[in-house]
């Protein structure tokens, strides 16, 4: 069992390279040392069987995406990987044009999430990544909350042919849930028509702690695009609180769309859109954005009491 999502990623990539001779990894320096240490490829002429399917562009993220698209155009299944800001935000137009406009597929795997690099500052934080990719047609977006879930979602992404984003984080839940790509997992069933709290990926443990005394249905989402409207509708809820580990409100339109024919109330919780000039720990940042269990309890209780 992989201890971290990054371990799961290295193992899954090994499986992908072994299973699919048309799979290829394209990097922009980030990740090179991890793949090397994992023994997936070697430098200095000591090549192993996969070394030619690792293409390192150097610190050139626009090129990383363009090269991956060129490989996809030639029938390969490219996997591109970097820190979230450098994978999604920096080469954003390359993703839009070179992949989406050209009708190509690929696997995009990021690490770093919203603030894994809590003490590295804003340059290494990408709370807007999911929102940005939602603006590009036909992106499947997975946000695992545990290393085992990451393994399932990464294997699925590698085996497909579409555009898939897998957002990995250091933040994890204590145990993995059964993951079916594209489906929410009903983690806790409230009474009929009880409010629904949607915990996305690594938010689940804190959401469960925050809501243990409340009559709510807790849905657990590891795929946020496409959005599992049916499972949300089936709860019968007319009060919904999505709790997202990236920019708050990112899935608000999908929640409202799912309940378009049902009067409903919505409160979005997630990472606040702010130029936060603080360093510190992951826990510090979770607290600043009101995503720790106590703050979530206050926010959700307050919302439901209205």
């Amino acid at each position: 069992m992989p201890a971290t999502m990054r371990d799961a990623f290295l193992e899954s990539t090994g499986r992908m390279l072994q299973k699919n001779p048309d799979s290829v990894v394209v990097l922009a320096d980030i990740g090179v040392s991890q793949f090397r240490e994992a023994g997936l490829f070697k430098y200095g002429g000591l090549s192993d069987e996969y070394s030619d399917r690792f293409i390192n562009c150097g610190i050139r993220e626009q090129l990383m995406i363009g090269v991956a698209a060129g490989l996809a155009k030639e029938g390969f299944r490219p996997l591109v990987h970097s820190y979230a800001p450098f994978l999604i935000e920096r080469p954003y137009e390359q993703i839009k044009i070179d992949f989406a406009h050209l009708g190509l597929g690929g696997v995009f795997v990021s690490v770093g999430a919203s603030f894994d690099a809590s003490n590295s500052g804003r340059t290494h934080q990408a709370p807007g990544d999911v929102g940005l990719l939602k603006l590009i047609p036909d992106f499947e977006i997975h946000v695992p909350g545990h290393a085992d879930e990451a393994a399932v979602l990464l294997d699925e992404a590698a085996a497909g042919d579409g555009r898939v984003y897998v957002r990995l984080s250091e933040d994890m839940n204590s145990t993995a849930r059964p993951v079916e790509p594209g489906k929410f997992h009903v983690e806790r069933q409230g009474s009929s028509g009880a409010p629904a709290v949607i915990a996305v990926g690594p938010m689940l443990d804190r959401v469960l702690e925050a809501t243990e005394a409340l009559d709510v249905t807790v849905l657990y989402a590891t795929t946020v695009m496409p959005f599992d409207s049916w499972t949300l509708r089936d709860t019968g809820a007319s009060e919904v609180v999505p709790v997202e580990p990236y920019l708050l409100g990112t899935s608000a339109a999908e929640v409202s769309g799912a309940l378009h024919d049902r009067p409903h109330r919505l409160m979005s919780l997630g990472v606040r859109n702010m130029e936060l000039r603080n360093y510190g720990t992951l826990e510090d940042h979770i607290e600043v954005h009101g995503l720790d269990a106590e703050s979530l309890r206050d926010s959700i209780s307050g919302f439901l009491a209205k």
Binding site: G66, V67, A69, K73, L102
Partner: peptide, 24 residues
């Protein structure tokens, strides 16, 4: 081969195509 219009996309894609052809 490719849809273009936004500038500066072709050469990177071309590099990727040739890396793919080399792999094949």
């Amino acid at each position: 081969e490719i849809g273009t219009g936004s500038l500066g996309h072709g050469l990177g894609i071309g590099v990727g195509m040739l890396m793919g052809l080399r792999l094949r």
